[in-house]
């Protein structure tokens, strides 16, 4: 049944042992992803998006980290697999575009070599073919005069160019699933749109599935078929992009939408601001994590955690004791 899906995530939980106690950054997350689909993961800063996307592909830190549940990528169970086994799917089945292009490239290695390396180690190409392919990839991601840039160090490129290089590296071994973790956060506005459009175009051309992580709903509005909304490490609402935008039931989703820059003015630079502070993951209440900031909160919200439950549309679910009315047609974006 599930083997036609590219990715099946079930009850995925990531816990870090920190000096201040156990910190559960991702809690019981379940969702799946079709082939050639683009899924959005949204949430405030610190909601666990990066940890979730890394855990899905098994790339969480190797020390002081515990993962339970299951994450199956094209039939491969990632949770519990050894680093050696995971290496067989990294790059070729699943690859990641990192959040910050300033830190995700090795500063003392020529960018060409950083692309070559994946091709030679993973695909067994020889030096010459790898170089030719690397230049092709640089061209594919829209880097001008790729043959010269091949020899550049990351420090000699702008942020946008570096992010293109990061994308080229991720695409090098033609992965089936591309995880894009806030691929545009560090970039300025005009570049952001270029990078997102590039990802869209490549996805169609290379027949990939994409998970697009962002704290900005404007980014996912036109690019994803479905959205997962996260808060304090949990999914609090999920559904088609349309349902999440226009039929959302969870007050947090509403707040997120309201604080998001309008799609029309194309400015995704502002950070999400919702009144109140994000929760301290080391000290979570037994109830709804959003309760301290929620204007609909009742006594039950503080004492009992709401589980995800279906809304009326198929595939639409939310976690809230006092959901917004069904026909709360938002005037948003």
């Amino acid at each position: 049944m599930s083997d036609d899906k590219l990715l099946v995530v079930k009850d995925l939980t990531t816990t870090f042992a920190t000096a201040g106690g156990d910190l559960t950054a991702v809690a019981k997350v379940s969702f799946d992803l079709e082939r050639n689909e683009t899924l959005g993961i949204v949430g405030e800063s610190g909601s666990g998006k990066t940890v979730l996307s890394r855990t899905i592909m098994g790339l969480q830190p190797r020390v002081n980290t515990t993962v339970t549940g299951s994450s199956i990528i094209d039939g491969f169970e990632v949770v519990g697999a050894s680093e050696n086994d995971k290496r067989t799917i990294w790059g070729t089945e699943v690859a990641m575009v990192f959040q910050d292009p300033m830190t995700s490239l090795n500063p003392v290695m020529r960018i060409g070599k950083q692309i070559d390396e994946a091709l030679r180690v993973r695909l067994g190409m020889n030096r010459k073919d790898a170089k030719a392919r690397a230049i092709e990839l640089l061209e594919l991601v829209g880097i001008p005069s790729p043959a010269q840039r091949y020899n550049a160090y990351p420090g000699q490129l702008s942020g946008g160019m570096r992010q293109r290089v990061v994308i080229a590296i991720a695409l090098a071994c033609s992965p089936k699933l591309l995880m894009a973790d806030e691929p545009t956060t560090g970039l300025d506005v005009t570049i952001q749109a270029q990078i997102l459009n590039l990802l869209d175009e490549l996805k169609e051309r290379l027949k990939m599935s994409v998970i697009l992580v962002t704290h900005d709903l404007g980014v996912v509005a036109t690019r994803t078929s479905r959205i997962v909304v996260m808060y304090a490490g949990r999914i609090v609402e999920t559904g088609t992009t349309r349902d999440v935008f226009y039929h959302h039931r969870m007050p947090y989703t509403r707040a997120l939408l309201e604080s998001s820059p309008k799609v029309s003015n194309k400015s995704h630079t502002r950070l999400v601001t919702i009144p109140g502070r994000p929760p301290n993951l080391l000290d979570l209440s037994p109830g709804c994590s959003f309760a301290p900031r929620c204007k609909y909160a009742t006594g039950q919200c503080h004492s009992e955690r709401p589980e995800l439950r279906p809304s009326i549309e198929p595939g639409h679910a939310f976690a809230c004791w006092n959901p917004l009315p069904v026909n709360a047609e938002a005037t948003l974006p």
């Binding site: 890394r54 592909m57 790339l59 680093e83 290496r87 067989t88 799917i89 990294w90 790059g91 070729t92 690859a95 990641m96 990192f98 910050d100 830190t103 995700s104 490239l105 090795n106 500063p107 003392v108 290695m109 390396e117 994946a118 180690v121 993973r122 990061v166 590296i169 991720a170 090098a172 071994c173």
Partner: peptide, 26 residues
Amino acid sequence: QEEFITMARSKGLSQRRIMWRHAFRP
């Protein structure tokens, strides 16, 4: 701890290679 090390891991490189080529040189 650097991000580019996680990046190197995500490419599917061996530990040995990550240590020598990516960590040792800087």
